[in-house]
Amino acid sequence: MGHKKKRSHPDLEELLARPWCYYCERDFEDLKLLISHQKAKHFKCERCGKRLNTAGGLSVHMNQVHKETLQCVENALPNRSGLDIEIFGMEGVPEDILQQHNQRIIQNFYQAQAERAAATGNPPRGHAVQGPAKKIKYETPEELKKRLAEHRAKFAAQKAAAANGTAPQVPQADGAAAAPAPFPAAQPPAYPYPAMPPTVPGYPAAAIPPFPPTAPAGVYPAPGAPPVPGAPGASFPLPARPPGAPGAGAALPQRPPFYNGAGAPGEGPVQKVGGDDIDQLIRMAEAGIKPQAQQQQGEKKEEGAAAGEKKKKEVRMVYADTEVSPEEKMALLPRYRWVEEAAA
């Protein structure tokens, strides 16, 4: 339904598709709402409250019924109150005004998006997947190249060393070496975590190819089981990751590890506040105060009362005494009271 809040940030097509009012630039969920808005705000007769469909209709109505001349459209923006343009819903809006409006919507959209991105550090909606990747890609190429160069150098050295040692190691080392290169690109989020080893994962593995069965166990005690040769990269980052939602946290490397489980970046501080609240609650509970609960009860009561009123809905009588007339009540006021003796 209309009132169920969709996403708080609709995309541009949705914004542009929204019907809007020529007179006041307000936009609406659908055409029906726009038309009822126009009837209520711009085409309503100020004399009798009749709602007309168009400014022209109102003009005729004013003329015929009240013998008055409609000067301008009510509640309109300064340069939009003219009667010369016949507007009904979205019909009749001049092309240039339409363009202006769309331009404004587009501009506002991008501005809002930029502001939001700046405020939250989040990528714009719909770019969530590419966004972080892009960010990292922007930062990594040199690094990547550098690392690749380093790796190649080492690999070359390794190869040279391997060529000196056992031949069968080569394809294995080759596989291990092949893995690290794509690895940082495929799973870039992994490495900035503080919990991660400072170096690129797989790198050490590749660096110690001569002793595959023993060396990994010594370097990475966490996995426990001896890593399968050729797949050290896969087994390695998992345990090192903080528990929670590693994927969600991926885009936000700078976040403190403690709050990793809680999706949005804004929640970091919020949670902190919550923590303070909880602290406060505990302190209050210790002191025997229960303000929170009382407040909630109060709110519930209010809600209950509001619901009751809603149910009754109906009418509020300005004067509700069914036995005594207003004049009788006025007669009792000192202002109007009349005492026989005083006058006699």
Partner: peptide, 17 residues
């Protein structure tokens, strides 16, 4: 001689004598 009360006040009608 009635007026719709604003929704904020629970809607309904204000009824005048």
């Amino acid at each position: 001689h009635r007026q719709a009360a604003p929704e904020a006040e629970g809607g309904g009608d204000i009824v005048y004598p």
